[in-house]
Design a protein around this nucleic acid. Structure first.
Lengths: 346, 346
DNA sequence: CTGAAAGCGCTTACAG
DNA sequence: CTGAAAGCGCTTACAG
């Protein structure tokens, strides 16, 4: 086994000092083109690869990242927070500081003010989860101009020139939900209720769009109704779903495209169905896991919060180190969970 | 922000030298109990946490791991190899050497000889994928006695006292397959063919067992036939499946519990079905992805090779560093893939 | 049983 | 534009 070449080897072969090698390595100014050339030749010849861990140690560098999130109360969000904390604890041993900035939900003025206050002297990168809006998009553009890496988390911000999006394709997620709905209904005819937290959220729109695509293409005996808004309020959701169930007498399936599982499950328990409706929800949480075990919920389409948090961290680190992102590794999967493949641990 | 305490701080507070702190930290012998006590008090007081990266640098330590695998030719295996190579390339930057030891399939004598030849002077940890057999189990016990960490990969070795198992619960995977089979068949009655690579493989037995459980519990109008062996030979598999299809005239579903997708798909194409059969397979590969897109294959139960490889590496590193394994992070999921959530990238 | 000094692979001021 | 020396947080011989 050949020992890995170090900066010393490069310096020796190139006939320059360590400092010069370092300058070339880090593309610092003030080196003659000829010298750069010599060093690069030595690097190529030795197949030198920089030891990032040693570099960070020498630099006394700590990566300083923040997760900027709305102050939601839902369980999926709690799980995401848990994953971020887990990642943060681990990262701490790796000279990486991660803090979490909670922003009042829907308060974009506040959010933008927070973002605008962040300078490259206090932060290296940001993972932002926020409703998609032009003001946030513009704040991200400004952050990047200031040299701060930005990844969008779960919800993308179109046109924001963010470095990376960590999350799933929501149209595909909706198609997945639609396919399971169609197949699980096994030929039964009737109406399908669609419940969303908010009709304006792009995530919900995309899921709904994918869902409708599949129903239109392959299950036209199913009749998806206009989206019902639950506004993330279980009591309210239950009430509006019950009203809808009473109004349409032949509902055979319910698609909850986000943050409505408790309310919908409550309504299902109270309504008098002819046959059990097929119920499909998004995001695996303690609540949805419970309803899967109970046999109330048939499938959950979800994304793993651990993967989300770790992917965001890996991407932010790669951006800071100017290293490429390994796309295949960062591709967040659309997970399908039914009772049989429900993870045993949380 | 308070600067993280270092060994220097600990030495100062404890009133000892760096070397002594190091001895206590690494539980090296030859330190008086009273001194150990002093150092530990300082560590506790400062909430000191060792910087593993710096430690490894100082130690010039490289982790030396190996993946020991059978020399299979299938696509799932190729994907696993690809993931291992990806992980190895990344790990290389992190002073971790990963080599792959390919062992002739089913040649346990050879495998055991290889394992017995490995000493702690050349390897720190091993990830082993092999058919479950007592001779391999015993070789693992010997490896661990010699101070080498061992994780079993994909197939566990019962009673081997391995440090960790990286893979899925195959009974649950079989139950998942059974549930999808039952639901996708939507009430159709008839026989279900079960194809395995080998009837003696524990993985196949467990999957079959889980599959039968669900059919027995919830879909007793379906009649699962005795397992057909394909021996990982597409031509042979196609032939035996065709024979079975001709023999039982009312096959409505086919469950391929491992390494048989090509042969089964071939048979499906040639046989004259009344209605399209539901076809469920294990392991996402280029082939199975192709048949999903074509609409021949309805669902694939799989495990992500990237997660497998990364998990194995994380666990081996943790074992070497004497750090705890984060169970929730290492729990390998049973993935369900249908056409709608098929990953776009490889 | 304990400590002073050198070194792991890199970067950072400071000189020149 | 270039280099010699010190230092990042830890460990390793070598003395004592």
């Amino acid at each position: 086994m050949i020992a890995k070449p170090t900066v010393n080897d490069v310096a020796r072969v190139a006939g320059v000092s360590l400092a010069t090698v370092d300058r070339v390595l880090n593309e610092r100014p003030g080196v003659r083109a000829a010298t750069i050339e010599k060093v690069n030749r030595a690097i190529a010849e030795l197949a030198y690869v920089r030891d990032t861990a040693a570099a960070n140690l020498a630099r006394s560098k700590t990566y300083r990242f923040a997760f900027v999130l709305p102050d939601w109360k839902g369980q999926f969000f709690a799980s995401l927070m848990g994953s971020i904390e887990e990642v943060a604890a681990q990262a701490h041993l790796d000279r990486t500081e991660i803090r979490t900035i909670l922003v009042p939900n829907h308060d974009h003025t506040f959010l933008v003010r927070e973002l605008d206050a962040l300078g490259p002297d206090e932060i290296d990168g940001l993972a932002i989860m926020s409703k998609e809006t032009p003001v946030v998009r513009d704040a991200i553009i400004r952050l990047r101009r200031r040299g701060i890496s930005v990844v969008t988390l779960i919800t993308d911000q179109l046109g924001s020139e963010r470095d990376h999006f960590v999350g799933i394709d929501n149209v595909a997620a909706g198609r997945t939900a639609g396919m399971l709905m169609g197949r699980f209904l096994a030929g039964r005819q009737g109406k399908v209720l669609v419940v969303v937290s908010s009709r304006q959220s792009r995530d919900m729109l995309e899921r709904r769009h994918g869902f409708d695509q599949i129903l239109g293409e392959q299950f036209d005996h199913l009749n998806a109704q206009p989206s019902i808004e639950g506004h993330e309020d279980p009591g309210y959701t239950e009430a509006v779903v019950l009203t809808a169930l009473d109004q349409y007498r032949d509902v055979v399936g319910i698609y909850s495209a986000g943050a409505s599982v408790l309310g919908v499950a409550g309504a299902i328990a109270k309504h008098n169905f002819h046959g059990r409706p097929i119920f499909i929800d998004h995001e695996l949480t303690d609540n949805s896991a419970h309803f899967i075990r109970e046999g109330v919920l048939d499938a959950v389409i979800t994304q793993n919060t651990g993967h989300l948090a770790r992917s965001a961290l890996r991407v932010l680190r790669a951006k800071c180190d100017n290293k490429p992102v390994i796309a295949s590794q960062e591709n967040i999967r659309i997970d399908i969970v039914i009772r049989e493949n429900l993870p045993t641990m949380k």
